[in-house]
Nucleic acid binder design. Structure first.
Lengths: 327, 327
DNA sequence: CTGAAAGCGCTTACAG
DNA sequence: CTGAAAGCGCTTACAG
C-alpha cells in the first residue's frame, strides 16, 4: 500500500463515508495509476455474497427462452449483479444450477423451466434456498412464483372467437407445460359457459415445438370434424400450423383462423402475421428479480408470493375480421 | 469435523489419491449424511480459479446469438465449468464482462460481439487477458480468433449463382459487421473473376436486422436496375427481403432468388424455405472453448491462432432450380 | 496415509 | 478519520 493502510483502501473502494476527502483523492489517484481491481472471490468469501444470480431456461429450441433470458439479464444488470445461465434438459432439470447455488457460486436462482414433480428442486426450495419460479407454476411448491395470467388469456381468446362466430374450434397444447394447461382450462371453461364447449376430437396434445403444429394439422384434417379455428399453446406451434396450412392450400384466415400465445417478434413478420396473446416478459423478469433479491436478503414475507401478470390479445392477419368489429 | 482432519476431508472431496480406502468411505458417508457442500468462493480464492467463463453475445434481436450461446454453454458445461453471460450494447461493448474478468469473477471470456476499434477490449487483450474472439475478426488484435470461412462462403455463393445463370445480382450487407465484410469480399472477387462484377447500384448496406431486408427491397425496386437475385449477409435480413417480396407480389424463386447466411432453424420453415450458408457453430464453440482453456492455463502458443471453419451451401426453395442440376 | 499450519485477498468490528 | 488484527473457508506444501 503506497501510503495508507489496507483498511482505508477498502473503505475508498466501497465508498465508505469514514475517509477524509484528501485521503480519498490520494488513494483514488494511485488506484487509477496502478489499475488495481479488487478480487471478487475474496470479497465474496468475506461478505458471503457472490453478487451473481443464475437463470435456468428451457432448451433454446423455443425462442421464447431467449426473450426471457434477455429480460432477466437486463434487470439483473440493473441491480449491479452478474448473470449465470444454465440450459435445462428436456425434463426441465438443471442439476448444475442447483449445485452452484449450494456451493454459493450464485446467490439465488430464477427458474423458468420448472414442471411438476422435480424432487431435487423442491427439496432445495423446502430447505430455504432462494429460488423464484418464473413463467411456470408447480403444484405445492412453497416459493415465490411469477407467471402470466394464463387462464385469463385463455378466456380472452374464447370470448374473441365466440364473438366473431367461430364454432369449430381446436386446441393444440401440451400436458407437461403449466402455462398451456392454465390457458386450456380458462379457454375450455369460458367456451363451455358461452354454450360452445370444445369438441374433444379437436383437442391435440404435443411437445409444443414447430413440428407439433404440422402434426396437429395433419391429424385434425384427417378427422371427421375439421376445425375452423386452431388455438395453440405457444407461437412456435402456431407457425407449424400456419406452414402446414400453407402446404395444404388451406387459406388463412378465409378457411382457418390461427391463434398463438406469447407474441414473440416473429409473430409480427409478414410470413406469419399471427394473432396471439402478448406476455409481459419484461415485467415478469423485473418482478422475479425483485422477489429473488428480497428472498436473498431474507426479507420475504411469511407465505410465498404468487404473482400473475396480465397479457393482452394482439389481433393480426391470421384471424382477420371486418375492420368495424372491435377486437 | 467428525473424526478426521480438515485436510483429509479436502482430499476426499478433491479425489486426491493419498487417502486410505476406509477413511475415504467413512468421510464420504458423513459428507452424504450432512449434505456438506464446499464453498466455491473459498476454493476460488485459494486456487485462483473461478471455474467459470463468460460469453459476450450480441443483442438478442438476432436469433443467431441464441444459437451461439447454446453451443458455448454446451461445451463449457462439458468441461465442468460455469457460464456467465453478458449482452453487448449495439456497439458491441460489454464493459461489465471485462470488469468481471479483471476482478477474476470469470477465468476467461469468449467474445462474439467484437467490431473494429474497441479500445477497452483491445487494451485488456494486449495486457494478456484470456479472451478468445469467436465469429468476428478484429483487425490487429493479438488473440485467438475462431470464425467462419466467410470469404469462402461468399465465393461459393458466387459460383452457384453464376452457374445457374443469375446475372442481376444484389448484395445486402453491413459495414460494421466483419463476417459480412468478408462474405462480401469473397463474393465480389469471385463474381469479378467470373466476368460478372457486381453492379454498385445493387449494393445496399444496413444494420442487418429484419427491417433492413424490407428496406433493401424497397430501395432496389425503386432503382433502375432491379435484381434477379438478392444475397444477404445473414438470414434475418433475408426473411425481411422475402416478406417484402411477398407483400409486393414479387414471386420467389420465379422472379427473384434470395440467399441468406447462417442457416438458423427458421430458414428451414416452409414460410421462408431459404437457401443459405450453414455455419458450423457447434465446432466454432468447441474450438473457442478449447483455445480459451489453453490460454487460461497459460499454454497458448507464441502467436495467436486464427481458425477458419468451413460452412456449406444449403439449397432450398428460395432459389429452386431444375432438379437435375447439382448444387 | 494423516494432520497442523500457512495463506489466498478481502471486509469489518474494534481501538485509538 | 485511520490502522492493526481477526476471520471468511478452503487447499496444499510440509513434517511425520
Amino acid at each position: 500500500m503506497s501510503g495508507v493502510s489496507q483498511s482505508t483502501v477498502s473503505r475508498v473502494l466501497s465508498g465508505h463515508p469514514n475517509v477524509s476527502a484528501k485521503t480519498r483523492a490520494a488513494v483514488t489517484e494511485i488506484l487509477n495509476q496502478t489499475g488495481f481491481v479488487p478480487n471478487a472471490s475474496a470479497r465474496a468469501m468475506r461478505t458471503q455474497r457472490s453478487r451473481s444470480i443464475g437463470v435456468v431456461v428451457s432448451t433454446p429450441v423455443n425462442l421464447y427462452g431467449l426473450e426471457v433470458m434477455g429480460q432477466v439479464h437486463e434487470h439483473v444488470a440493473r441491480h449491479g449483479l452478474r448473470l449465470s445461465v444454465w440450459l435445462a434438459d428436456v425434463d426441465g432439470n438443471a442439476p448444475d444450477a442447483l449445485q452452484a447455488l449450494r456451493e454459493r457460486s450464485v446467490d439465488g436462482l430464477i427458474y423458468t423451466a420448472a414442471v411438476d414433480h422435480m424432487p431435487e428442486l423442491e427439496a432445495d426450495i423446502n430447505a430455504g434456498a432462494p429460488i423464484v419460479l418464473m413463467g411456470r407454476t408447480v403444484r405445492g411448491v412453497a416459493t415465490d412464483t411469477v407467471a402470466g395470467a394464463n387462464a385469463q388469456g385463455g378466456r380472452r381468446v374464447a370470448d374473441y372467437l365466440i364473438q366473431h362466430g367461430r364454432r369449430d374450434i381446436a386446441w393444440v397444447g401440451g400436458r407437461a407445460f403449466s402455462p398451456g394447461r392454465e390457458i386450456e382450462q380458462g379457454f375450455r371453461n369460458r367456451l363451455a359457459s358461452l354454450g360452445a364447449p370444445i369438441d374433444e376430437s379437436r383437442v391435440v396434445y404435443g411437445d409444443l415445438f414447430y413440428a407439433s403444429g404440422e402434426a396437429a394439422v395433419e391429424q385434425l384434417w384427417n378427422s371427421k370434424s375439421k376445425p375452423d379455428t386452431i388455438f395453440c399453446a405457444n407461437d412456435l406451434v402456431a407457425y407449424g400450423v400456419l406452414d402446414a396450412a400453407r402446404k395444404s392450400n388451406i387459406r388463412v384466415p378465409e378457411d382457418l383462423w390461427v391463434i398463438g400465445y406469447n407474441n414473440i417478434p416473429i409473430s409480427g413478420w409478414a410470413a406469419y402475421d399471427l394473432t396471439t396473446v402478448y406476455q409481459p416478459i419484461a415485467d415478469m423478469a423485473r418482478v422475479s428479480v425483485e422477489l429473488l433479491l428480497q428472498r436473498i436478503e431474507g426479507k420475504q414475507g411469511p407465505s410465498p408470493q404468487r404473482r400473475r401478470l396480465e397479457g393482452k390479445l394482439i389481433v393480426r392477419g391470421s384471424t382477420a375480421h371486418a375492420p368495424h368489429e372491435s377486437s
